[in-house]
């Protein structure tokens, strides 16, 4: 294109790369949770007002707005409250599709968090299914949720719908 022609063409795309570095601060409460993961244990926190156990805790009870300072160790078993099967490829994906992404409610916790379900075909995952965490080998454990490889079925009978209904 000649300079004259270029001058008459509208500019429709302007690429402006933006690169920003941040130092991330997980905070006091999340640090407790992350250090637990580095040891291969789940550490939650209990609200002093309502007694509910949060994992991971962000340091405050979202209902009462007070600090959750009592640390509670939880087992690595729980149930799938609900789930979806991810069948869409996207950037940053770590697992081959299709795979099951579930809300996992650990025994003794009052909040579920998202986890990967493996060692079972996607179409056999159920609401109420009992699962357990599979950790990475001890030498790979670190202060990250990546320490939990995935959850897998325990083979125990499913939990009754009524037992987890309020967590949906």
């Amino acid at each position: 294109m000649s300079g004259a022609e270029a001058g008459t063409q509208p500019v429709t795309v302007l690429e402006t790369p933006i690169h920003l570095d941040y130092v991330f601060t997980p905070g006091i409460a999340q640090s407790i949770f992350l250090r637990g993961l580095a040891r291969g244990v789940f550490l939650g926190q209990r609200c002093p007002t309502c007694g509910k156990v949060y994992i991971p805790s962000r340091g405050s009870c979202p209902v009462d707005g007070v600090a959750t300072d009592e640390v509670v160790e939880l087992p690595d078993t729980g149930i799938v409250t609900t789930y979806c099967v991810v069948n869409v490829p996207f950037a940053g994906q770590a697992v081959e599709i299709p795979y099951t992404c579930a809300q996992v409610l650990l025994d003794g916790a009052n909040i579920s968090f998202m986890g990967l379900i493996q060692e079972v075909p996607a179409d056999q995952v159920r609401m109420g299914m009992r699962v357990e965490a599979v950790w990475v080998p001890p030498d790979e454990l670190g202060p990250s949720l990546a320490s939990v490889k995935y959850f897998r079925p325990t083979g125990e009978p499913d939990a009754l719908y009524e037992s987890y209904e309020e967590y949906l």
Partner: peptide, 11 residues
């Protein structure tokens, strides 16, 4: 503020 996150700063 090296140890607290935004929620912990605000609470």
């Amino acid at each position: 503020e090296a140890s607290r996150n935004e929620v912990e700063l605000l609470m």
